[in-house]
Structure formats: C-alpha cells, structure tokens
Simulated assay, not measured.
Amino acid sequence: MLKPDWLRVKAPQRERIGEVADLLLDLKLNTVCQEASCPNIGECFAGGTATFLIMGPGCTRACPYCDIDFDKSVRSLDPTEPERLGEATARLGLKHVVITSVNRDDLSDGGASQFVACIEAVRQRSPQTSIELLIPDFCGDWDALATVMEAGPDVLNHNIETVPRLYKKARPQGIYERSLELLLQVRERWPKAYSKSGLMVGLGESDEEVIETLLDLREHRVDIVTIGQYLSPGPKHLPVDRFVTPEQFERFRLHGEQELGFLQVVSTPLTRSSYHAGEVQRLMQLHPR
C-alpha cells in the first residue's frame, strides 16, 4: 500500500541530528526514536530532543506492530544508566524530558526502580526539567506503579495502543481493561500528575471504535491523548489496513477536546506518543495542580 502525500517527512537537518546522535552514542544511551524507527526522528533530533529508552533495547514482549527487538532472556539492569541519562538531559539543555522503556516482564518490579533512579538523576542534574514517563503496564502490579508515581513524575503516559477488538491481534500480551485501570489509578491516587495515553489508527479499527476508545479513556480520567497513523515497520509486522486522512484526524481532535473534555488531543498522521511532548509545559501552566 503506497503512502499518501500527507505522510511525507521533510528532510532533516543533518548537522544537528549528528550532534544529538553522537552524544547518545558517547553516553551509550538508547532512544525510542532510533529503536522504533520513528518518522519524526529528524525533526526531534534537529530540535535537540529525544525520548530516552531505558532497560533496552530488547523487549520481553513481541507485539507485531512494533519495531523494537524481541528478547526474552534475563538481563541485569545497568546501574550507571540513570546517571548517563541525567547527564544527557543536562547537556542537551532539555526543558522537558520523556523517559520510556521496553517491557521487562523478567524483572520482579517490571523495572519500576530503574524509572525512579532515572527521575532522581534528572532532577539532580537538571532540576528545572519537567519529566514525562511512558511506562508499560507492569503486568498489573500496582505496587510497582506506586513505586514510580511516588517519585513524582509530572506526566504519566501509558499507551492504550489500539481499540479493544484488536488487542489479541496487535497487543497479545496486553489487556485493554488493565491499561485503563492503570490510567485511572494514576489520576485517583496521584492527582497532581497529568495522565496521558495514545493510540494508533490504521490497524483495522473503524472511526466509531476510535471514538469509543476515546470515551473509555476520558471516563478513566485521562488528560492528554495522542493519535497517529500506524506505519508498518516491515514485512514481518502487521500490515497497514488503511491510511486515515488529515481531515479525520482533525475530527478526532475536535471530538476529544470539545465533546469529551480532554485537556489536549494531539491528532495528526505523524503524531507519536512523545511528539511535541514539551507542549505539556504550556498545559501545566494553563491547568495547574
């Protein structure tokens, strides 16, 4: 299936990309931008931002839409990773940092303690930087969630990814209701944090199912939602079922913000869960907690 014109990406600023890539290589850090083949890598690297991928690059789940490598072997955590991430945040001068991870179902706490160590390292090296976490579901371990939330991230993101009907196809080790419960717990137990989630379209869902999923997220008190076009990483991954038009993405945005009451819905073909994440600082100023 040929990509439509609206999915073309502008040529990146190679000099700035090289600077960020060199820094990440020097500090031996992974980014989801590189590991997941994000189409916005040029824009984000050129702007001096990156979404750090910790505890990776191998993931213990094999979701057929994702380009991150599957690795079910037991691997110890690198105790120097948080310090290196903190240094990168300071050297890049980031105002807002996004920290995500692969799924680490092999760890007793799912990697919650490593998230905490990374938060502490960023706060020590760059105390003015706001922190957004994009976390896995921790297999429903709410004690692990509490460990992360007690460290005080400004934004907690957990992606719903797709509509419930497609979970067995796209996210076979995930549970739709479990992800909703995680998001609700964040808002009810840690009300100062902003909750966020995201989903892909183009996997076989209908527009009506997207609207229903948005309603589920709002009923579970999610503040911010991202919606983007699924792009298949390769022939071994799920194929694209359809390309959603920019006009339909805009309709999703308007419905989410005006009808359902989300603080923000970022909905464009190239939107990814961390795309323009720094804009959350503006929301935090408009809607302080």
Rank of each mutant, 00 (worst) to 15 (best):
L145K: 06
S108M: 03
L183A: 12
R251D: 13
A36V: 00
I68H: 11
S197K: 06
E188F: 08
E205V: 03
W190G: 07
F252E: 02
P164H: 04
G174N: 05
R187M: 04
C33L: 00
G56P: 08
P239Y: 00
P82G: 10
V163C: 07
W190C: 07
L85H: 14
P39K: 06
H276P: 00
A21N: 06
C118G: 03
V280I: 10
R218C: 02
V201L: 08
A46Y: 09
C66L: 03
F52T: 13
L53A: 03
C118F: 08
L53D: 08
S130V: 11
M284A: 04
G234R: 09
L286A: 03
E43H: 14
G42V: 01
D78N: 15
F252M: 00
W142T: 15
C139R: 15
N30Y: 14
T162E: 12
T80W: 07
Q34T: 03
A62F: 15
V32P: 00
N30G: 08
C118Y: 10
M284S: 05
D109E: 02
S73R: 14
V163G: 07
K192S: 13
K169A: 12
P246C: 09
T268R: 09
L2N: 15
E120G: 11
P233E: 06
Q248I: 10
C59E: 02
H96T: 02
G228F: 04
P127A: 08
L263W: 15
V225N: 01
L2R: 14
N157T: 06
P82I: 06
L263R: 14
L166H: 04
N103P: 01
L94Q: 11
A170W: 04
E150H: 07
G152P: 05
E150D: 13
E150S: 09
A90P: 12
D143A: 09
R16N: 15
H158I: 00
Y176L: 09
L23Q: 07
V266Y: 15
R171K: 12
I160R: 03
H158N: 00
G86T: 08
F115I: 02
D78A: 11
L214C: 00
P79K: 06
M149P: 04
Q248D: 08
K192F: 01
K168R: 15
H96D: 01
C118D: 01
S197T: 09
Q34G: 01
E212Q: 12
A21P: 04
T245H: 11
S197Q: 04
G58P: 00
H276K: 08
Y230P: 10
R178E: 01
H287W: 13
L25E: 06
V280W: 00
T51S: 09
C38H: 06
R171P: 03
Q258R: 01
V244S: 06
I119K: 03
K72Q: 13
V186T: 10
E208Q: 12
Q13D: 13
V102R: 05
